[in-house]
Design a protein around this nucleic acid. Structure first.
Length: 257
DNA sequence: AATACCGCCAACCGCCTGAAT
DNA sequence: GATTCAGGCGGTTGGCGGTAT
């Protein structure tokens, strides 16, 4: 005998979350904390799967979320981390407080990938595309020396994505890269930018779209309860773009305790 | 004004791992 | 030790809004 199933998935609502559902989930978590996601929807009065509640909280409702477009510096850092970690979005996201793995993954797939391609860099291998094609043509059996850490023509250490041993992986994920490595990577990407002359220009001309895709304030019922501090905070969160005000929110929560 | 196309992103799906039984 | 599940993760998709024709 194992555990009980997380939900029966019968009669559960799917699709976009309504304001009311957000309100219920936030109220419940702020009042009770996160004990077990399986019980959250039932106790919060939601017709949702626990998994769905968890995702909604993590990706959208969490008070410490940082809203708004990723900065150029953040993008650069994502590229560096991706070169080291590959598609391990949660590991990458852990370097960006307030950012979610989903957000970073989306950003990578929709923007960064294209930029790298424009620069002639393969977004998967982080190799220059030309070089990669040449290698594919002439490739025999790669030696461990040539693949472990080989520098591309742009000065970036490539081939960092192949499988690591447990220890290596731990070093990569738990310990931040040392300063030398970081500056080396940065230098490499600076060279890419300078050579191609595209990266910076595009970054500078890319307008930041700070508005959340989901406008909470539009349909909020203003008469919703304001009986306690947490409720007030929930309301403030729902009635304005309060997600940017991390410090204020944390201070507020502290005062509530 | 209508339609087609494109980009973005929230949400879902399925798999994996570790923990509980 | 085997079984079962919760939580976490990465890949994918569908809907919406903006832009081009």
């Amino acid at each position: 005998m194992g555990r009980q199933p997380c939900c029966d998935k019968v009669g559960l609502k799917r699709g976009p979350w309504s304001i009311e559902e957000d309100h219920k989930l936030m109220n419940f978590i702020l009042n009770n904390g996160i004990l077990c996601w399986r019980t959250v929807p039932k106790l919060a009065g939601l017709q949702r799967c626990g998994k769905s509640c968890r995702l909604r909280w993590i990706n959208y409702l969490r008070p410490d979320l940082k809203r708004g477009a990723l900065s150029e510096a953040e993008e650069d850092q994502i590229i560096q981390l991706h070169a080291r970690l590959g598609n391990r979005w949660s590991k990458i996201a852990s370097h960006f407080p307030g950012r979610t793995d989903n957000e970073i993954k989306n950003h990578w797939n929709t923007r960064i990938k294209k930029r790298l391609k424009l620069l002639g860099v393969d977004p998967v291998s982080h190799k220059p595309i030309e070089q990669q094609e040449d290698e594919e043509k002439t490739e025999t059996i790669p030696t461990s020396n040539s693949s472990k850490q080989r520098e591309g023509s742009l000065g970036v250490p490539f081939m960092i994505m192949e499988k690591h041993t447990k220890n290596e992986e731990q070093q990569l994920t738990e310990g931040d890269m040392n300063l030398d490595e970081t500056s080396e990577l940065l230098h490499g990407y600076e060279m890419v930018s300078l050579d191609a002359g595209l990266w910076m220009n595009q970054g500078a001309t890319n307008p930041s779209s700070c508005s959340p895709s989901f406008s909470l304030e539009e349909s909020l019922n203003p008469s919703m309860g304001e009986s306690n501090p947490i409720q007030q905070w929930v309301d403030s969160m729902l009635s304005c773009d309060g997600f940017n005000q991390l410090e204020e929110v944390l201070l507020f929560l502290k005062n509530c305790q």
